[in-house]
Design a protein around this nucleic acid. Sequence first.
DNA 1: GCATAATATTGCTTATTAGTAATATTGTCA
DNA 2: TGACAATATTACTAATAAGCAATATTATGC
Lengths: 112, 112
Amino acid sequence: MAKSLLDQHQLQAVAKLFELLAEPTRLDILQNLKKAPLSVGQIVAATNAKQSNISKQLGILYDAGLLKRERQGNLIFYSIADPMIFDLCALVCGKLRKDAESQLALIRSLGK
Amino acid sequence: MAKSLLDQHQLQAVAKLFELLAEPTRLDILQNLKKAPLSVGQIVAATNAKQSNISKQLGILYDAGLLKRERQGNLIFYSIADPMIFDLCALVCGKLRKDAESQLALIRSLGK
DNA sequence: GCATAATATTGCTTATTAGTAATATTGTCA
DNA sequence: TGACAATATTACTAATAAGCAATATTATGC
C-alpha cells in the first residue's frame, strides 16, 4: 500500500463520528451509560439537561448506532452499543491531562 | 476512585478536541501532514479546498495546539504537534471498517 | 375507557462555523 | 525601493445544530 489517504467520502464518515462526540451533553450521556444501561428519566436526573434535549440527543446517538435501546414497560433503557467510544474518550482525556501537566511544569519552571 | 465522571468543564474540553476532528477538511489536512511537514501551498495542492479556507483551518488547528509551524523564507511549513491524533483516527477508521464488514455479512446472509 | 407517567416530537430562536472572494500582510529578490 | 509570491485576514452568506416550551405519543393500572 502506497499512500492510503482517505477519500472525501471516507473523511466525511470519520468526521461524522467525531461530530457525535463533539458535544458535552452527548458525552455526558455516554459516560453515564458506561457502567450500566439507564432509562431516559435516570439520564435526565444524572445530567443537568432538560428532558426534551436528552431525548433528542439520545435519538441522535441511537440513529448513529452508538446506542442500543430496549423498552421495559413504561421505561426505555439505553445502553452503549460499541464500547470502543470509551477508548476514544480515554485517549483524548489522556492527551488533555498530559498537556495540562506539561503546562503546569512550564509554569513552575518559570516561577523559579 | 469511586465514580470519576467528568464535570461540565472537562466535558467541554473533550468535546472541543473532538470538534477539531469533526471536519473533513481538517482531517484531510492532518492526514496529508502525517508523513511529513508541508507548506501551505503544498496542502492546498493536495486537497481540493481554496487557499483561504486551508489557511483558516490551519489557523484553527494551530491555535488548538494540534499543529506546529515554522517559517522557511517565503514558505510556512506546518507539522503535526501530537501524533496521538492518528491513534484517534485509527480507532475510528477501525470501527467504521468493522461496522461496514458486519453490515456486508448481514446482507450476504440474507441473500442466501 | 380514563387518568397518569415516561418518552418523543415539533416549532422556534440563537449561536456557531465552513466556505468564498477580496484584500492585507509578510518575505524575497532584483 | 518596487514587483512579486506565499500566506493571513476580513466581511459576508448559508447551513447546521443545541436548547427550550409546548404538545404528541405510548404504555400502565384502575
